[in-house]
Amino acid sequence: MSSVALLLGWVVISSAPASPVDDDASAATELPIGGVAPLQGGASAPSAPASTIPVDAAEPLDRPVSSDASPASSSIPITGTRPLPQVPERIEPPPDPKSTRMVRQDVMLGPVWRVRPVDTMVTTGATLGHEHGLSGTVHAGMILASDRRQVQAFDFPFGVGAVYRARLGHRSVYGSVGLTAGLLVHRARTVLGVTHRVDPDLRLPLRFDWTISAATGLSLAFVPGYSVRERSYLRRGAPVWSRSAVRLGLVIGLHWDIVQRRARPRRQVDRRRGGER
């Protein structure tokens, strides 16, 4: 009774006005207005070309960069208070994850244990909020029950909630924990016809994201779920299909980030390009 689950989702993160992110070389010619880039603090070295700064590793811009700043800055040599002789044109300030907003998509696959039977799950979702810290999230999915002899069942969990994201060690690894509440719609075809049942549903997704390139990454998530009612189908008094109210999904997949920035008065084009990522 084992199968894999596929998780497909989006995490929506858009740039906040106060925290522009610019990892695009052409966009770095001008300092962001609200970015208060601590140029005198030597935000970044020339050896860290802006174009390679991953979104996940964005620097906080609203405070002076120091050695005890966000771990994301660890890959960028810090030059203390020594003033930079000049600001390289292509260097841009690292983004602040706490205030960075973006759009992320992902596809993930893995098993979901529903106490004993293992079913297949696909989920899709959207998260709106900050790259680091609290965000809102929405998800919807489908669980395809494995044993389809007497009961051909699909479960459709969906819900809204919050996730808290934080960087874990390496700057390209983020972890998040969330809680969502919603409904689980159970739909099954049996000898009786098509049956529908709706239960409250809670999920506690625990998720790890690896950024591979600027916009894409790998995700692994444990998704415990609880849909309140245990469900079973009987034939001649014996359960021929049953699912516990508790389930544990293990999904692995890809995600895409779509980063949106504050509009720039003179470089409209760049925003579009950024949005395409």
């Binding site: 049996t190 049956t195 309140v228 009612r229 469900r231 189908y233 009987l234 034939r235 021929v240």
Partner: peptide, 14 residues
């Protein structure tokens, strides 16, 4: 009460 909730559907025709 929620934890002990069970929804049983009898497939034997009536």
């Amino acid at each position: 009460a929620l934890a002990s909730c069970e929804d049983v559907i009898d497939l034997d025709p009536v």
